[in-house]
Design a protein around this nucleic acid. Structure first.
Lengths: 156, 156
DNA sequence: CCTAATAGATATGGAGTATAACAATGATGA
DNA sequence: TCATCATTGTTATACTCCATATCTATTAGG
């Protein structure tokens, strides 16, 4: 390692072209956030998607699978396995919707509510630590940009 | 649809708990950006990763696969198939590194350079359209936040 | 030399996502 | 009523992305 050109290859990689793209920056930052989240949720045996589903069911008891899939922006077939998992762990249950025997009313169990509270608290703390360099106004500004991007998509 | 309670289910889903998380907003916005990018790259038969790899090879001709994997933050085995694909399409080639017969020096072909230019221009235009509601100062603020998150991870 | 480290490749599995197709049920209109 | 269509959840399938273990060829270092 004494000779800096010992292998006659590029020494420093430039990502100048990619760095100009907002999406590139977003992907790199999101990878960090996602890795931190996954690490945080591991002790609750939750993943990002099972966590999101659980929180939404706790906050909206009685919702249908199709509503949950819409809210999570995933396809109905992919939600089924998530719900299967949460149900098998007895964190939620599939109740019947009265007057519509096609649909399930998803409801959290007591254990599901408790795990949800713990997980939300843990995620809040970890996200706070991850964003400790970012003050409130910066977060608000970044959040506004995210909202605009999301809205732009919904509108078409 | 005349009776708003006709099915006795939750009518409007609340994601208030999740919305408080920066990571949640980021994921939703990033999904939009990624979908737009994928759509843009489709006509060039590129995906996000093959596109990133191609751009980095064009900008850093002669770099090694392990350097590229580092730059892209992906594992070496996963890069191999990306490089295979770009090489098979004759957008890049695996040259030999002098004095190190283990390594390849990745270089773009002329076709690779041309496709890269076209793709970069298309991505730039599409990203501009996606961000047309977001002015320069907002973008800069959001980009700063992304940089801080990324740096926080690198530092530990 | 002998051993350890490095570069690339192969195999494999998990996770996320998307589509097609199906059964059961509900809604609608002739 | 009844025929038709839409909706709900499900199964099967496939593709992409990501991670790990393991292998070879080669290089580096004691």
């Amino acid at each position: 390692m004494s000779n800096p050109q010992r292998k006659q290859t590029v020494t420093e990689i430039s990502d100048a072209t990619l760095r100009q793209f907002f999406g590139y920056r977003m992907k790199r930052a999101f990878n960090v956030v996602q890795a931190d989240l996954a690490q945080t949720l591991k002790r609750y045996e939750l993943r990002m998607l099972t966590y999101s589903a659980l929180v939404l069911i706790v906050d909206n008891p009685g919702l249908r699978q199709s509503q949950l899939a819409d809210a999570m922006d995933i396809e109905r077939p992919n939600l089924v396995v998530l719900i299967d998992e949460l149900e098998r762990r007895e964190l939620i249950l599939r109740d019947r919707v009265p007057n519509d025997r096609r649909a399930y009313a998803l409801k959290p169990t007591l254990a599901g509510q408790q795990l949800c509270s713990q997980a939300v608290a843990a995620v809040t703390a970890h996200e706070e630590a991850l964003l400790q360099d970012v003050d409130a106004s910066e977060r608000a500004a970044a959040t506004d940009v995210m909202k605009k991007i999301e809205r732009r998509y919904r509108d078409g």
